[in-house]
């Protein structure tokens, strides 16, 4: 029972991180209908900047720099590449992000070389014993941070002008433009937000507690698991992203323990496959209808 409880806490902690990544995907998708395959490279980029600055300016300042730079990179990708090809369809733009991902990822992996550094200094490897179960601080902080951020996101999307503009554009791009919402600004802010969330997520991913592996190609593939999280919940549903993220975290934690580490990677994707066959638009996604 204690093992199971511990697995649940681990799963929820991981799930919180996947939820942050998936939320980024979904925000971009809702604003632009583009699926961002470069999400993993944003995660690596943020992590890399934390790594190179933390010895000089301290971890906390480095973490902020990492988060901001991941956000700015996302913004730059949108402004410099995607915004310039407005006539290309979302499908081609998704392919374009694959190209971006290859370039950024390969360069950061080259810079990392053989080192696999951990970057979650503030909370990594400081477990707490609580009534027979070991709780990893990383998971607890991740859960807390994600809860605060996700709550803030939902409040902002409901009550602020930015949130209303965002939802209006997601609903109907042309109508939103007609009532004076600047589409380019909404799109840019969506990418910025997704980048910031990716920069926060990496502080939890590249830790001893989360994956046992530091910043490396493995970090990129963990970020890849945010794909099933977003798709599971439904690509156009922010609630779905949260549910999907938590589901992926739990499946990962449970299958790692009960089956094997090697299987856990596939388990997440297999669950997604099953959900897609039953509900092709994900759990909370809008069903696509065809007018003949």
């Amino acid at each position: 029972m204690t093992t199971f409880l511990q697995l649940m806490v681990n799963g929820l902690g991981k799930g919180a991180v996947f939820a942050l990544l998936a939320l980024g995907f979904v925000v971009i998708y809702k604003a632009t209908e583009v699926v961002n395959f470069a999400h993993g490279s944003l995660v690596l980029f943020g992590g890399y900047l934390v790594l190179v600055t933390k010895d000089h300016i301290g971890w906390a300042a480095a973490a902020i720099i990492g988060i901001l730079s991941a956000g700015l990179l996302a913004l730059a990708v949108e402004r410099l590449l995607l915004a310039r090809s407005r006539h290309a369809d979302p499908f081609s733009l998704a392919l374009l992000t694959i190209g971006v991902d290859v370039i950024i990822t390969e360069e950061i992996i080259r810079r990392l070389g053989v080192s696999v550094p951990f970057i979650g200094d503030a909370w990594d490897a400081k477990p707490i014993q609580l009534g027979g179960i070991t709780l990893f601080r990383t998971h607890l902080v991740a859960l807390l941070v994600a809860t605060v951020l996700i709550t803030a996101f939902f409040l902002a999307s409901r009550y602020t002008n930015w949130g209303i503009a965002m939802r209006a554009q997601a609903e109907n791009r042309e109508a939103a433009a007609l009532v004076g919402i600047r589409s380019s600004r909404v799109t840019a802010s969506a990418w910025l937000l997704a980048g910031l969330l990716a920069g926060i997520a990496v502080l939890f991913i590249a830790t001893q507690d989360f994956s046992g592996a530091g910043l490396s190609r493995g970090t990129h593939s963990i970020a890849l698991a945010a794909f099933p999280a977003a798709i599971l919940g439904g690509l156009d549903s922010t609630v779905g992203a949260i549910v999907g993220g938590v589901a992926v975290g739990l499946v990962d934690a449970l299958s790692t323990y009960y089956v094997s580490f090697a299987f856990a990677k596939s388990a997440v994707f297999l669950v997604m496959l099953v959900v897609l066959v039953v509900r092709p638009a994900g759990l909370f996604g809008t069903r696509e209808t065809t007018r003949v």
């Binding site: 699926v35 794909f227 690509l235 596939s266 997440v268 297999l270 496959l273 897609l276 092709p280």
Partner: peptide, 18 residues
């Protein structure tokens, strides 16, 4: 369909890995 299919097909790669 579309992008959903692309990501769904990604799961086969992970299945193959295992």
């Amino acid at each position: 369909r579309g992008i959903y299919l692309g990501v769904a097909s990604l799961s086969l790669v992970f299945l193959g890995l295992y």
